[in-house]
Design a protein around this nucleic acid. Structure first.
Lengths: 204, 204
DNA sequence: CTTTTTGCACTGACCGGTCAGTCTAAGACT
DNA sequence: AGTCTTAGACTGACCGGTCAGTGCAAAAAG
């Protein structure tokens, strides 16, 4: 059977899964270690056997989770490039990838937004690194698009990247929370339209 | 400053001010009532004389705060209309108003984002009402713009409204936290450009 | 005189973290 | 084979501290 190495890995994974939903629902401080342990089906001591503290558990969770997002955005951009799509197509593909990601891991993104702009918290620097990695993927696509002349050279790359990220994030979270009856295609096309300026009355 | 209003109103205001920054920094659960009272320069008993509980204090704070935002967005839209501007101009003015608001009350918006998409929390319904009021202001401008033909009839109004709101919110919070050296005009014009589709290489 | 605020001691539930001990499977020794 | 040892993973009762909320008498404000 699975030897000790795998067993531990498995326990850690279950603790992550338990923690991410609980913390997304209730916030870090009002989620108790007992709750996390219970939902993961392990004893409280096991949490501390696997992680130095509640905070460390949370930090590792964040790091692991956002790595998944970054990889997924990067993959979307790369695939578009391989298919010979434009850089604007790549942005569109990344919007889609972002929406897919939030559909799969809603709790993770929920918790990310809830913590990102707080100050004086232990995991502040972890979050900043993590944010920078995600935004950097968007920025590099924007930069390429400006280089190839697809987008205006006037573009403020860092600001636009963070605005795009925010637009997708909030729209997706709102979609999940308040209009879950919409399809992902509806959300995607609303965002695409916004991005491509068709909002401003240019009829197709 | 003015000591307008009754004595009681004054202490309530000071409690709001103390609570909003503390909770934005630390979150609701890890902010103690003693801290709030101390920062407001008031005895702990006074907190409970004025508010039924910590939760109620927070709820009233949210309600009061977002009312300010809604009023400010509405005012921006109305002023544009009075000046005879288009509905797209009104959207632009609302973006500006949103940025101004976040500049003035960063903690409030910080805390709003942190709590909005949580579930199972006492103030969930308060937040939903509050969100609906703010989004409704944007939606009504979008609706008018569609009616006058300024914007495409294909526009998905609720989704676009929440995407716009999110775009401004996240861009502004990122601006404050990570790029405070930028001027409000830079942020504003980056967002305007995004909205008016000039991202896609179309020069004005 | 009424409303509001103060100061402060107190309670009881709750929670992060600890620790001595249990379980199990894989050797090691006889 | 049977018995003993070791190491890693896990357990849960327990401890010490924290904090929302209470109670109340006395002072301040209006």
């Amino acid at each position: 059977m699975d030897s000790s190495g795998t067993r531990r890995q498995n326990t850690r994974r279950r603790l992550f899964e338990a923690a991410v939903t609980l913390i997304a629902e209730q916030g870090f401080s009002s989620t108790t270690v007992d709750e996390i342990a219970e939902r993961a089906g392990v004893a409280k001591g096991t949490v501390y056997y696997n992680f130095a503290s509640k905070t460390v558990l949370f930090e590792e969770l964040l790091r692991h989770g956002i790595e998944l997002l970054t990889d997924s955005l990067q993959a979307a951009a790369d695939e578009t490039a391989e298919r010979g799509g434009s850089r604007v197509d790549a942005l569109d593909a990344m919007i889609r990838a972002g929406l897919d990601f939030i559909t799969r891991y809603p709790a993770l993104m929920q918790l990310y937004v809830a913590e990102l702009w707080r100050t004086n918290r232990a995991w502040q620097s972890t979050l900043m690194q993590v944010r920078q990695k995600a935004i950097a993927v968007i920025e590099s696509v924007l930069r390429e698009a400006v280089a190839t002349g697809e987008l205006s050279a006037e573009l403020d790359i860092p600001l636009t990247a963070s605005a795009l990220f925010g637009m997708v994030l909030v729209a997706a979270l709102d979609w999940q929370s308040f209009q879950p009856e919409r399809s992902i295609d509806e959300v995607h096309s609303a965002l695409s339209r916004l991005l491509q300026g068709r909002v401003s009355g240019v009829r197709p």
